[in-house]
């Protein structure tokens, strides 16, 4: 369980003025839940994710994981970034093996696990390729495999499909759901796409434009496993989308 208690974040702008990015956020995320944080760009949703990751220290308030205060990054929380952040000097296999090797798993065992993961994310045959040789979608698959490889309890996904074209994004969303449905890790997923949030999540946390506050938490009560083609025809799915889109419009906070 992740608990975020009254977290606020103040940044200094380059003009040396204080900018309130997050204001008084409190949120609890249950184990095994797929939770999306949805909001317009600049609402601090990524910052919230970085606080849970331990990459950024909140100005006020605190985040806890399993009752213990988060003071820094750790292998229990695995990030996947929009920028992929792969190690360019390592091959696909080298990237995926990095975490397990760091945790002291023997080379042969780490390699076997990593090869299986690479196959799972659909990149069999690309083990010896370098990140530069891969397309954006493939890079993000590697990044996901690299993070899954060290078995984090929570996946922290920071607009992971934001830099990809629509077709690639759809395929990766489907594959992510398939992978997630196998072991149901806790996922905290940041996005600005309403459809993406509704399609993937159990719960959508809607944020307001800056300063970021929680505006509404919407439970997405749709059956799993979810199939995109079925959902697109499902009036409940459509209703969620329209409802959330309206909230954006109401407050003039649409993009």
């Amino acid at each position: 369980m992740i608990e975020i208690n009254q977290v606020s974040q103040v940044f200094q702008t380059s003009a040396r003025q204080d900018h309130l990015a997050l204001s008084d956020i409190s949120l609890t995320i249950q184990d095994g839940a797929f939770v999306s944080i949805l909001g317009p760009s600049g609402c601090g949703k990524s910052t919230l994710l970085y606080i849970v990751g331990g990459f950024v220290r909140p100005t006020r308030g605190a985040a806890k994981m399993k009752g213990r205060a988060i003071t820094g990054p750790g292998p229990d929380r695995g990030p996947v970034f929009q920028e992929f952040a792969l190690f360019p000097w390592k091959s696909v296999l080298g990237n995926v093996m990095y975490g397990p090797r760091q945790q002291g798993i023997k080379h042969a065992e780490a390699e076997a696990q990593s090869r299986a993961l690479i196959e799972m994310v659909g990149l069999k045959g690309f083990e010896d390729f370098y990140p530069k040789e891969l397309s954006g979608g493939m890079k993000q698959r590697v990044a996901l495999a690299r993070t899954l490889a060290y078995h984090p309890e929570v996946l922290l996904m920071d607009e992971p499909f934001g830099a990809l074209d629509a077709h690639t994004r759809t395929r990766l969303q489907n594959d992510l759901l398939n992978i997630w449905e196998r072991d149901r890790k806790t996922v905290l997923f940041v996005t600005h796409s309403v459809e993406e949030a509704v399609f993937l999540s159990d719960k959508v946390v809607m944020m307001t434009r800056s300063p970021g506050r929680i505006r509404e938490i919407i439970e997405i009560d749709l059956p799993r496993p979810r199939r995109r083609t079925e959902l697109l025809l499902d009036p409940r799915y459509q209703k969620y989308i329209v409802e959330i889109e309206r909230m954006f419009d109401d407050s003039g906070e649409g993009e």
Partner: peptide
């Protein structure tokens, strides 16, 4: 890239390890 270092930190690399094993090769 900051995110590359964060990825390393999440895997459990210490500050010195990040300097030697991420910053140096990158």
């Amino acid at each position: 890239e900051e995110k590359m270092l964060w990825s390393g930190a999440a895997m459990g690399l210490s500050a010195v390890q990040r300097l030697v094993r991420i910053v140096l090769p990158a």
